[in-house]
Design a protein around this nucleic acid. Structure first.
Length: 205
DNA sequence: AAGGTTGACAACCGCCCCGGT
DNA sequence: CACCGGGGCGGTTGTCAACCT
């Protein structure tokens, strides 16, 4: 049962990448472009899992990565988008040029989460910790955009319900004058959750 | 100075979705 | 229509450095 492993684990390296491995990966992708991750390691002469190569490239080696500390503006954008989208790191990353989902996820968990907690805010609900709504939801994240089933059909309604306020940062002093662009790589959400993203988009406008 | 604790972040894992067949 | 493989995502873990006692 279960899926076959994505690679032959017995013959793959794990852990930190060496300089030489990085260089191999970079030069291969420069020559052949991204994609074909499964076959890439062999073609590039790397003893790595294809997934590992992809992750290394996307999160660390890509030339357009910004690196360095997050600015106050980036902080604000992350908090606002998280209040709307929940833990949709790839979507949030799509709004921050040069930042990766992994980087944002780490930054959220190590910095912003703590910052919100120190302000007495629930990092999941974006509400005061002793707020009834926060207590009700407790540690569960704000419902991520879900498939448009019958019960959620009124999400497009122009009336602002209490639940919508909760999901979209209601009660916070947030400047929601944002425009969400759906990153090209977010296939997962483009189809499955486009409906609710659209509703958030409409809400933000 | 040494040992323990905490923070930061790179990397891995398991699952899900989509497209091709 | 069902199955399979590839790509992508979010959650979690591992490791190292900085800080504290």
């Amino acid at each position: 049962m279960g899926r076959s492993p994505c690679c032959e684990k017995a013959h793959t390296n794990k852990g930190a990448w060496s300089k030489e491995e990085d260089e191999r990966l970079i030069s291969y992708i420069r020559a052949h472009g991204e994609g074909g991750w499964r076959s890439l390691p062999k073609a590039a002469g790397l003893l790595r899992c294809g997934k590992s190569c992809r992750l290394r490239w996307i999160n660390y080696l890509r030339p357009d990565l910004k690196r360095g500390n997050f600015t106050k503006e980036e902080d604000d954008v992350i908090i606002k988008l998280h209040s709307l989208l929940g833990n949709k790191w790839s979507l949030i990353a799509g709004r921050l040029a040069g930042r990766t989902d992994n980087e944002i996820k780490n930054y959220w968990n190590t910095h912003i989460k703590r910052k919100l907690l120190s302000r007495g805010m629930d990092p999941q609900t974006h509400r005061p910790i002793n707020h009834p709504a926060a207590a009700k939801i407790d540690s569960t994240p704000p419902p991520p955009p879900k498939e448009n089933n019958s019960s959620s059909a009124d999400n497009t309604s122009t009336t602002t319900t209490t639940e919508e306020e909760e999901n979209c940062g209601g009660g916070l002093d947030l400047d929601l004058d944002l425009c969400i662009g759906i990153p090209s790589h977010a296939n997962k959400y483009r189809k499955k959750e486009s409906f609710n993203l659209k509703s958030c988009y409409d809400f933000l406008r």
